[in-house]
Design a binder for these strands. Sequence first.
DNA 1: TTGCTTGTGATACGGCCCGTATCGTATCAT
DNA 2: ATGATACGATACGGGCCGTATCACAAGCAA
Lengths: 189, 189
Amino acid sequence: MHRKILEATRELLGEEGFADLRLEHVAARAGVGKATIYRRWGSKEALAQELLAELAAPHIAVADSDDTREELLAAVVNPMRAVTDTPFGPVIRALLSQIAVNPTLGDPFRATVVQARRNEIARLIARGIARGDLRPDVDVDVATELLVGPVYFRLMFGGQLTLDFANRVVDSVLRGYGVPGREFPKPEP
Amino acid sequence: MHRKILEATRELLGEEGFADLRLEHVAARAGVGKATIYRRWGSKEALAQELLAELAAPHIAVADSDDTREELLAAVVNPMRAVTDTPFGPVIRALLSQIAVNPTLGDPFRATVVQARRNEIARLIARGIARGDLRPDVDVDVATELLVGPVYFRLMFGGQLTLDFANRVVDSVLRGYGVPGREFPKPEP
DNA sequence: TTGCTTGTGATACGGCCCGTATCGTATCAT
DNA sequence: ATGATACGATACGGGCCGTATCACAAGCAA
């Protein structure tokens, strides 16, 4: 029951988007009375929130390896694959605005999924620093955004989400765009 | 008339989001008959699209300077300020999902706003290369995503959009996270 | 079996909003 | 003055909201 409702929600969210999602359609597709949905969730947002949390959970952890570059690449490829190859993709697209605007969805998502992603990358960064591969003063929050931000940028604004793309992002983060030896002093305020 | 309808749309889009935007409310707030809106736009999406294009236009161009770092910083600060300090912010938040999912809004937005942003950054990169500040083989698309992606990441998923943040992004893109002199060879497939 | 509780699918309800059609009116150029 | 055009207002059938009510089936106790 619970399961069938979430599945129907997932399908219709991908087909119609959040704005045109109709709980009556969810009930019909799940073979369920409309009241049953309201008994358990009480709103479209609550239903979407549970679905989102459930779909996002499997894509957080990054496998350890003994290579810093490989681990950072996984930190990019993980959310990329989640978005291109799993049901999480259509759902997160449909809910981006709600996450950005509606604290009911946004706050739990940020507190769990986003924070877990940041923690995971912080762990990788710390391992890279311990190996002597990364600068000790790396800003882990900005690192998260440099690694994962481009993935979501392309998800919204177009562009191929390929392994080559992920490699270029990692290369850029790792080596930087600056010509070696040349200085770009930050001006004092 | 046209103006008043777009203003009412902008306000209500920020207050209610796209899913709960009601054209009857837009008409009422604009002091206009509902039919007038349908005569000119014919759908909620078309109305949102015109508003979005109008609000995004002023925030594309980046002022030239004689300093590569300053220009790249402007490429980050520009979209950041657009999102924090102008009416574009609430509107783009409300429409992120529609852009990601609905080609009616997404295609024109990608073809104009996003492409213009990419072109502008390509110009800055070319100038930086000509000055000898940047590697000649910089991938301009990835550069765009590394510079602007973090801004949209924080817009959706939380985090302060401050000048300090923009500086850290530019520093990272410019200098990279790699320890100078240390190599991170990309493995052959 | 009987009786009670719980959760269900179905249905109906007033209310809101959709998108369209049709009014009478105000503002133009001719 | 005449005609055309665009307007605000209003009304319409239809869809969906969120709630309430119903009969019914499953589970459990005695």
